[in-house]
């Protein structure tokens, strides 16, 4: 399938592709915190600029990514509408007949939706330029000094989660096609349609889980694996510094 590219590594030769995994993980955390702290439109604009620059710099296929982000855009709209309607405040349109949309709710909704989309974009930039094994090794490296945390297990769980998100998205796309070919669209009841999709998807995912567990065991899965070699170049530190700069700017209000 491979039509869904969100969270998928796309090989390349750019600075972001070659960047040290640990620093890339640092950038991901720093930018995520910055997104969480962003409140004003200028913050969002700076974060959007930084993320788009990273995506363009990494030469990732923006058109295909935009297609994948549609799902998150839908969630963003739901968040926006829910906040606009349910958060109390000054009415936006005083004489709106059906529901009352508050100015505060709209503002909160826009911020939450914007944060969601920015996080998705940041994740796309990092995941698109980093093989999962590099992220796994970087996470393990970061967690190793933390007492009582099974670093290798946590890192492998993160690895498998990402692998599974891709597998589930592929399965989902395949099932949608299969059901469309059998005229599922003629069923008007969305809950029924969701049932047609959700149950087989769950079953298939569980089957795939079992297969992957067998495949990992047959290839001697172990938590003590070959140690990775990390090398951070000056440019990597530069990128990490820029991300930190964005965080400082956003957190300074």
């Amino acid at each position: 399938m491979a039509q869904v590219i969100f969270l998928r590594y796309m090989p390349g030769d750019t600075l972001l592709h070659k960047m040290d995994g640990r620093l890339k993980l640092f950038c991901l955390v720093v930018l995520s915190v910055a997104v969480g702290l962003a409140t004003g439109w200028i913050h969002f604009l700076v974060l959007l600029g930084a993320t788009v620059t990273a995506l363009v710099w990494a030469k990732l296929p923006l058109g295909a990514l935009l297609r994948d982000w549609r799902f998150f855009a839908v969630i963003g709209v739901v968040i926006l509408v829910a906040n606009a309607v349910f958060v109390p405040g000054e009415p936006l349109l005083p004489y709106f007949p059906l529901v009352e949309v508050s100015q505060e709710g709209l503002g909160v909704g826009l911020r939450f939706a914007g944060r969601l989309l920015l996080i998705v974009m940041v994740c796309s930039a990092v995941m698109g330029t980093t093989p999962i094994s590099v992220l796994r090794d970087a996470l393990e490296w970061c967690l190793r000094p933390v007492p009582f945390v099974p670093a290798a297990r946590v890192a492998m769980m993160m690895n498998l989660t990402i692998v599974f998100v891709c597998v589930i998205m592929d399965n989902y796309a395949e099932m949608v096609y299969a059901q469309k070919s059998r005229c599922v669209e003629s069923c008007r009841n969305p809950i029924k349609r969701m049932k047609f999709l959700a149950l087989p998807l769950l079953t298939r995912t569980l089957q795939r889980t079992e297969e992957i567990v067998y495949a990992m065991e047959s290839r001697c899965y172990s938590e003590t694996r070959t140690q990775p070699i990390f090398t951070a170049h000056k440019a990597d530190w530069g990128v990490a510094g820029a991300c930190l700069g964005v965080l400082i700017f956003v957190s300074s209000g």
Binding site: P11, S133, R208, E211, R219, C220, P228, I229
Partner: peptide
């Protein structure tokens, strides 16, 4: 085959077994 693939690149996937065996890099 799809169930057996764990890596996100071809090389990464092939390295999965040897890395589990803790062979030197």
């Amino acid at each position: 085959a799809d169930s057996q693939i764990i890596g996100q690149t071809v090389a990464e996937d092939v390295a999965f077994g040897p890395e589990n065996l803790r062979w030197p890099r």
